[in-house]
């Protein structure tokens, strides 16, 4: 379909550049997809769709610019525009609601003791990782997103604004609210583990 005008690359060139510049982002991109969808198969589909789109629009990508941010933006848009609508499975659990129930009932009291005894079998590192993951997963997707982009992937506020298509001021305030919310969830856990936050 594409006309071969003077400036355009040959298919071989395009494929080679695509592989060299975009495929190395696969790992962070898949992780981002997984944190958005909380499902491995969905993450798989979302990443594939993102790369297909990226290939289709590769001519618009300026070589040497931020490939990672570009792909993250495509993925985020795919997630919002199509993916959420497409996966209309009503059975999908709204994690924030479920977590809410557990948090109110189960945080204090016996559960604290139960988790400390588990430390013998599981490494403490794993335990903390799991707890951070479940606190993060319990956040609304917009909050989860800014934390992943900022803390896990190390994007700057400016890059985040571009990826999410929102003003930098909104990035700041969303990140602030997201962290407050995450802090609240983790503090409950810290208390159950015997930390006082001192």
């Amino acid at each position: 379909m594409s006309e071969q005008t003077g400036k355009q690359m040959s298919k071989e060139e395009k494929d080679a550049r695509f592989e060299a510049e975009l495929l190395p982002v696969l790992d962070p991109l898949y992780n981002f997809a997984y944190r958005l969808t909380l499902d491995e198969d969905d993450a798989n589909d979302l990443v594939q769709e993102t790369y297909l789109k990226a290939y289709r629009f590769f001519d618009y990508f300026e070589q040497g610019t931020n490939a990672k941010a570009w792909l993250f933006r495509i993925l985020k848009n795919s997630f919002i525009n199509e993916f959420r609508k497409k996966s209309k499975q009503p059975a999908k659990v709204d994690y924030s609601e479920v977590e809410g129930y557990y948090n109110t009932e189960d945080v204090e009291g016996e559960s604290g003791v139960a988790t400390t005894t588990d430390m013998r079998t599981e490494s403490v590192q794993d335990l903390i990782g799991d707890e951070v993951a479940s606190a993060l997963n319990a956040l609304p997707v917009d909050f989860r997103t800014v934390i992943i982009l900022c803390d896990l992937e190390g994007f700057t506020y400016e890059e985040m604004a571009k990826i999410l298509d929102i003003p930098i001021g909104t990035v700041r305030s969303r990140l602030h609210r997201a962290r407050n919310s995450l802090k609240e969830k983790l503090e409950k856990y810290a208390k159950s583990m015997g930390y006082n936050g001192e």
């Binding site: 997984y34 903390i128 951070v132 993951a133 803390d151 896990l152």
Partner: peptide
């Protein structure tokens, strides 16, 4: 640091 140091990558 909790997020960047402890969240496991899939």
């Amino acid at each position: 640091n909790l997020v960047c140091g402890h969240l496991k990558r899939v």
